[in-house]
C-alpha cells in the first residue's frame, strides 16, 4: 500500500450514555460461535455481532469507514477473525487508546492500520468526535483532522515494524522482502 493517510467516516463505539466502550473483547467483536469460519468473505457479517447497541454494524458499515473504540480493545481470544471481520467489511482503520497485545499484533501482521489515540476519551466526552464525522488520519505523521467538526487531533504514528509490514501488505510479504 502506498497511501499513508486515510479519509473516511468514523464509527465511535459508545454506549447508551455516549461513553466510549472499554474492554470490548473478541467475543463481542466476533463471537466464538463462528470460530470455524476460515473464509474472509464470510466473516464481515458477524463483526460486532455480540456488542450491545452495535449488532447491526455490518449493515451500517461502508468500505472506507474507520472504527474508534475505548481502551483495551480486542481483549480475550487470539482469534484473527476479530481483525479479519473488519477487513472483510473494508473498514480501513481502527483507533483506540490501547489494545490487547494479541489483537494489536494480529492487526499489524495483517497490514491493517491499527492506531493508538490517547485523546479518544476526551474527544468523545467533549463531543469533538462523533459517529458519522468525516475524519482524516495520517498513519505516519500521526496527524488527525475531523473535517466535520473542523478540529485537529493526533494519534501515535505507526512504529517502524508496523510501518514496514503495512508497506509490504502483511507479515508474509514482509518476511519475503528479506528472504524469510
Amino acid at each position: 500500500m502506498d497511501t499513508t493517510s486515510h479519509r473516511g467516516r468514523i464509527w465511535v463505539l459508545t454506549d447508551k450514555s455516549g461513553t466510549l466502550i472499554e474492554d470490548i473483547d473478541t467475543d463481542q467483536i466476533f463471537h466464538n460461535a463462528f470460530l470455524h469460519i476460515t473464509e474472509l468473505a464470510e466473516m464481515g457479517q458477524y463483526a460486532l455481532g455480540n456488542l450491545e447497541g452495535w449488532k447491526d454494524f455490518p449493515k451500517k458499515a461502508k468500505p472506507g469507514d474507520i472504527v474508534a473504540a475505548g481502551r483495551n480493545f480486542g481483549a480475550g481470544s487470539s482469534r484473527q477473525q476479530a481483525v479479519d471481520c473488519f477487513i472483510a467489511l473494508k473498514v480501513d482503520a481502527i483507533l483506540a487508546p490501547s489494545y490487547s497485545s494479541i489483537y494489536f499484533r494480529n492487526a499489524v501482521n495483517s497490514g491493517f492500520p491499527i492506531l493508538r489515540c490517547g485523546e479518544l476519551d476526551s474527544l468523545t466526552a467533549g463531543r469533538k468526535l462523533e459517529s458519522g464525522d468525516e475524519v482524516e488520519v495520517d498513519f505516519l505523521s500521526g496527524k488527525g483532522f475531523n473535517l466535520t467538526k473542523n478540529s485537529a487531533f493526533s494519534v501515535e504514528p505507526m512504529s517502524a515494524v508496523q510501518r514496514e509490514i503495512f508497506r509490504e501488505g502483511n507479515l508474509f510479504a514482509f518476511g519475503r522482502s528479506f528472504g524469510r
Binding site: S78, Q80, R105, N106, N109, S110, F172
Partner: peptide, 15 residues
C-alpha cells in the same frame, strides 16, 4: 508462552 493469531503462527511454522 504467548497466544498469537493465525497469521503469526503460520509465519512461525515456516520461519
Amino acid at each position: 508462552g504467548q497466544g498469537m493469531g493465525d497469521v503469526d503462527v503460520t509465519f512461525a511454522f515456516r520461519t
